[in-house]
Design a protein around this nucleic acid. Structure first.
Length: 591
RNA sequence: GCCCCCAUCGUCUAGAGGCCCAGGACAUCAGAUUCUCAGUCUGAAUACACCGGUUCGAAUCCGGUUGGGGGUACCA
């Protein structure tokens, strides 16, 4: 009864009735548990229907399909479900939806688990990382699905259909030509009545010819008309259930009470509600989240990486010429055939994109959680940022620690408008986290970052990392930025010719450097304390304070931008400092 | 095409009929601090898509227009 209602049972007009205090009911009223609609159904009564006279335990889930890496959008969905469950003192389930045998991979599932762990979105039930597939993988639950499929068949609600994909495509095209919507229905004319020559049949679920009312936690009531549904496939010809079927069985079987998912699923909800209804189950509450796009309004898709990589190759190719793919293949180690297909946009292989972009020294846009991890974002910062796209705690606070987010996470705070992913703001927020985090936490984050990247900083010991962190945290947005900028501590710098010219050759640079060297030379031992006075002397050199800092920067780091001279030299060490100054002085003579 | 959702500064948002000639944050610009870069602090500029209606009063309620988005798979 709760899932469906007849055409005249409910309407938008009913929904917008006056409420006692004036105004009309809105989504937030639904969320707040106030009565809506003619039946007066409330969140609470639905709960008690489910578990009679017991306190309803909130249970949410995140159910990705392992067909790629964990996307930031998916991470946000996971976060919302996590926050909702935690706030309610309930459980958070992770389930892997691998009913697509062709596209699902074990590596992808493992990657998603790793990303979830990195984000710290801990699940109460789900796969055990590193262990074999368990019952939280849909591919392990075929028996359960078949059981319920059989029941639908017995009820006469499911039937075999014999059209091949090609035939269906033709029917759709035909319908489009005739400017009429295509709906697959059991009673439609021209349905294939036998399986002759068409391979294994699929099983379809006969959708009810009724309006279906969705009571959405964030959108309010959405009514999908009786003519809009078609009979969905619930079992594919490979014997696997479709998403629509498995999701309903599992959410019910696992006792899921609330489903927060992306708005792209909104039109799937009627199908799911009809299935719940067929089994006489109370459906979970659904809430559809607004989507997140790039700043330019395009989708944040993995395709972007491929596009960026291709563009880099094109940009490096002289005008009017074709890119030299053979050379590129040889240089990158990508198979020539695969590379050609990639460049011809025949595939958007992420691995090829990454390899090509790395060779072209082109940064790729961050799309997946691990991209952000490799770019040196902190998990908490990423989560904090992403939480604020489509959700607001109300008020003016923007930086929220995990417990605060949990405490303030109300469905009423979830917005309806699609958002855009503002990387500039994420960068700012990450900087805030880098600065505010305890040094121990930062060190742990750095550790995790270095595991998935390849920077010379990884060679540094604990005390050195700590010193670097203290030196850079005030001036860095991401860990990657710090790792990149601190290279010169670990390897010989390449001298930026423009900086060399400006600060060493000109402006008395060589002279200042010479004098600076004399001041530094006798310092032993070599540490922040012993260097403080000498460095002060150096900074006082020249008519403007700090005039002598730049030649040293260039000599020691190769460029004109570094942390403060004192700390930098102290960490660099006496030997390296003097050697690089001497080297630079020698270079001056050579010019 | 058809169905559905949405609409406040460039971006994320606050806003539940008078508290709003609209608040915060990022970004932008200007200034201060400073050995570079950053950071920090101060200040400036910038929005209720449009048209009707309801009301003493509308960013807030209703209708339409326009714009954006989603769906329309043997993908999830």
């Amino acid at each position: 009864m709760p899932a469906l209602s007849g055409k005249d049972a409910s309407s938008a007009a009913d929904y917008h009735r006056q409420r006692p205090g004036g105004g009309v009911y809105r989504a937030r009223d639904v969320a707040a548990g106030r009565p809506i609609g003619p039946t007066g159904t409330t969140w609470f009564t639905q709960q008690t229907e489910r578990s009679f006279m017991t306190t309803p335990m909130v249970k949410t889930r995140f159910a990705p399909s392992p067909t790629g890496y964990l996307h930031v959008g998916g991470a946000r969905t996971a976060l919302f479900n996590y926050l909702f469950a935690r706030r309610a003192g309930g459980q958070f389930v992770l389930r892997i939806e691998d009913t697509d045998q062709v596209r699902s991979t074990a590596e992808s599932a493992a990657g998603i688990l790793a990303d979830m762990q990195w984000l710290g979105l801990n699940w109460d039930e789900g796969p055990a990382p590193g262990a074999a597939k368990n019952q939280y993988f849909q591919s392990m639950r075929l028996e359960l699905y078949n059981q319920f499929i059989d029941e639908l068949v017995r009820q006469g609600r499911a039937y075999e259909a014999y059209e091949t994909p090609a035939e269906l495509a033709a029917m759709r095209q035909q319908a489009e030509r005739e400017k009429r919507p295509f709906r697959y229905r059991r009673d439609m004319p021209g349905r294939a009545q036998s399986r002759i020559g068409s391979g294994p049949a699929v099983l379809r679920f006969e959708m009810p010819r009724k309006d279906i009312v969705i009571s959405d936690l964030v959108l309010g009531q959405v009514i999908v008309g009786a003519d809009e549904h078609d009979d969905i496939i619930i079992r594919k010809s490979d014997g696997f259930p479709t998403y629509h079927f498995a999701v309903v069985i599992d959410d019910h079987d696992m006792g899921i009470t609330h489903v927060l998912r992306a708005q792209e699923h909104l039109m799937n909800t009627p199908k799911h509600l009809a299935l719940y209804d067929a089994f006489n189950w109370t459906p979970p509450e659904h809430g559809h989240l607004p989507l997140v796009f790039n700043m330019d309004g395009t989708k944040m898709s993995k395709r972007e990486k491929a596009r960026t990589a291709r563009a880099a190759v094109q940009a490096a190719t002289p005008k009017g010429q074709k890119p030299d793919l053979e050379t590129l293949a040889a240089n990158t180690g990508v198979a020539p055939d695969a590379l050609a297909a990639f460049m011809a946009k025949k595939n958007d292989d992420a691995q090829i994109a990454v390899t090509v972009a790395a060779f072209m020294r082109t940064p790729l846009p961050e799309i997946d959680v691990q991209d952000f991890r490799r770019s040196g974002y902190l998990a908490d910062a990423l989560l904090n940022f992403v939480a604020l796209v489509g959700w607001s705690p109300g008020g003016n606070q923007e930086i929220l620690a995990r417990p605060e987010m949990i405490d303030k996470f109300l469905v009423e705070g979830i917005g309806k408008t699609n958002g855009r992913f503002d990387r500039k703001k994420l960068l700012w927020m990450n900087g805030q986290y880098v600065r505010d985090q305890s040094l121990e936490a930062l060190l742990a984050a750095l550790e995790s970052f270095l595991q998935v990247t390849d920077y010379p900083l990884a060679r540094a010991d604990g005390p050195t990392r700590l010193a670097l962190l203290e030196m850079y945290r005030e001036r860095t947005g991401t860990l990657a930025e710090m790792a990149e900028n601190s290279r010169f501590f670990f390897e010989e710098p390449t001298i930026d010719p423009r900086a060399f010219e400006k600060f060493v050759i000109n402006n008395d640079g060589a002279q200042l450097l010479q004098t600076s060297r004399k001041i530094l030379e006798p310092v032993t031992p070599w540490n922040v304390q012993t260097l403080r006075e000498p460095v002060e002397q150096i900074l006082a050199l020249g008519e403007k304070r700090g005039a002598a800092a730049q030649p040293i920067r260039v000599a020691v780091s190769g460029g004109s931008v570094t942390p403060p001279v004192l700390e930098m030299l102290a960490l660099l060490g006496r030997e390296t400092t003097l050697r690089r100054i001497d080297q630079t002085l020698a270079n001056v003579k050579a010019t």
